[in-house]
């Protein structure tokens, strides 16, 4: 570990080919794990005796919900590195994570709604987790919108960095406040803690799907960061020398 000079990869020139080599690996891992996970989740795992087959939604709901929160933290960490060390690659990584994070949040909300309808009898309940997830989506959209509103990419990097750091401090506070609000209005909400004890096979299916979602996110973020690098380093010699740019 210590022998690797991590700062070597803090430059797009070295990071770009590294990302290119990693993408197929992560993409294939994601595809294989997703195939196994879907088979386990949809075919092997038995029907839940309480929720019937509706529970099979959690094989995509839980992984995307985890990722949506985790990606925000990862984005904030890259932003902090970018602000602290003024490294271009970190800022570009933060920029590349935001859309994937927002999409994961969206899927978590959507699947949560379609799980809630058969389970709770309603598409939307002001449950603490769903409400926090909704606000998390707004936080992601805020970062993306701020990025789009600023023309100078360096200013955008730093502004989005400050915003995501403020956001990451707020996420736990928001979750705590929504939970607090939820318990105060117990009558109007539906308890979500009634999750049934899951059989081992269900848990393993969910874990496999989580890894698949992880690998997919890494692959797509790396692919996006490569695009961002070409875009922002356009005109630099190393971009001009790339095989895909050189050869028509």
């Amino acid at each position: 570990m210590a022998s690797i000079n991590w700062f070597k990869y803090a430059s797009p020139v070295t990071f770009f080919p590294l990302a290119g080599r990693l993408i197929p690996w992560f993409a294939w891992m994601a595809a294989i794990l997703a195939a196994i996970g879907l088979y386990v989740g949809l075919v092997v795992a038995p029907t839940d005796f309480q929720q019937g087959d509706a529970y099979r939604i959690i094989f995509i709901h839980v992984p995307t919900a985890w990722l949506s929160m985790f990606l925000y933290v990862v984005m904030a960490i890259w932003s902090a590195l970018a602000l602290g060390f003024n490294t271009r690659v970190s800022a570009m990584m933060a920029q590349a994570i935001a859309p994937t994070g927002a999409l994961m949040t969206f899927i978590a909300l959507w699947t949560g709604a379609f799980w809630g309808r058969p389970t709770w009898g309603t598409y939307w309940a002001w449950d603490a987790r769903m409400t926090s997830e909704l606000i998390l989506l707004f936080l992601y959209l805020g970062v993306i919108a701020l990025r789009n509103a600023i023309d100078d990419p360096r200013r955008a990097d730093r502004a989005c960095g400050v915003l995501s750091l403020v956001g990451v401090v707020n996420v736990p506070i928001i979750y705590f406040s929504v939970k607090w609000w939820n318990t105060l209005h117990q009558g109007s909400s539906i308890s979500m803690t009634a999750a049934p004890k899951m059989a081992a096979i269900m848990v393993s299916g969910m874990l496999i799907m989580s890894f698949a979602a992880w690998f997919y996110s890494i692959a797509v973020v790396l692919a996006r960061v490569r695009t961002i690098m070409i875009d922002r380093e356009r005109g630099a010699a190393w971009v001009g020398n790339l095989a895909e740019v050189k050869n028509a």
Binding site: D53, I57, T100, L103, F106, I107, W110, T111, F114
Partner: peptide, 25 residues
């Protein structure tokens, strides 16, 4: 299998949304 014990609509709507979003991304 497609009927999902009567929950087919909910299950497949979720999985379809996932597939569409990933495809679009």
């Amino acid at each position: 299998f497609l009927a999902m014990g009567g929950y087919g609509f909910y299950v497949w709507s979720s999985y379809a949304a996932m597939a569409v979003v990933i495809g679009l991304e």
